[in-house]
């Protein structure tokens, strides 16, 4: 069985947030909800200073604490490893959000879908996109399951200007993702949380100034 995942090469990433906005338009998420985002940081003191860019999304953990704690069964792992929320089952208890060490879950507060980005009312686009969501439930990156099912790559992957996001199946040992991880010592985020993420990173810290 497949285990879909991603390898993100941080050496290439320029922190442009094209992924952030590509995801925003793909899903039309409401204000302050970002399935994809870039965590930035200034490191070092002047003049030995750099900025680091860490693009993140749901790690689609194989041992997903968010699924583990979900009392309703709304959170589940698909056969191909994608961690999803069934909005019809979610009761909005936020236990999954608390449990995710990566802060990759978003709760649709009541009233949130009644206004769009521009205050009162919804734009034409928001009216269509928000129909996918339900207030009082949890939403998260779905690894673009709807695209993947059509044989497309996730929105954040296809748009990435530097092509630093490699999407594919983590399962085959000889596959592209595993070789990238092997050859470059790829690592997931917060391995100490034992979540077995499906998103791996190559070479985070900048070469020293």
């Amino acid at each position: 069985m497949a285990r879909l995942g991603m390898v993100i090469d941080l050496r290439r990433c320029i922190g442009c947030n094209a992924c952030t906005i590509a995801c925003k338009q793909e899903h039309g998420t409401p204000e302050d909800v970002h399935f994809a985002r870039v965590v930035t940081r200034e490191v070092g003191t002047y003049p030995a200073t750099r900025r680091t860019f860490l693009p993140v999304l749901c790690n689609h953990c194989a041992d997903a604490p968010c699924v583990e704690v979900c009392p309703s069964g709304a959170s589940y792992i698909r056969a191909d490893g994608i961690v999803l929320v069934d909005r019809e089952k979610c009761i909005g208890c936020r236990a999954c959000a608390v449990a995710c060490p990566y802060m990759n879950r978003h709760f649709l507060e009541r009233g949130l879908l009644r206004h769009g980005y521009n205050g009162d009312g919804l734009s034409v686009l928001e009216a269509v996109k928000f129909a996918e969501f339900e207030e009082g439930t949890m939403i998260k990156c779905n690894l673009c399951a709807h695209r993947v099912d059509q044989g497309l790559e996730p929105a954040c992957v296809v748009t990435c200007p530097t092509e630093c996001r490699f999407f594919g199946d983590l399962e085959p040992e000889a596959g592209r993702l595993q070789s990238l991880i092997r050859d470059h010592g790829g690592k997931p985020l917060l391995p100490e949380c034992n979540t077995r993420p499906s998103i791996y990173y190559l070479d985070g810290e900048p070469r020293q100034a």
Binding site: C16, N17, A18, T20, I21, A22, K24, Q25, Y117, S123, L125, V158, T159, C160, P161, E163
Partner: peptide
């Protein structure tokens, strides 16, 4: 096939 963030915001 790539777009910058502004290009991705065109619909907005």
């Amino acid at each position: 096939g790539k777009l910058c963030p502004k290009g991705n915001a065109g619909l907005a």
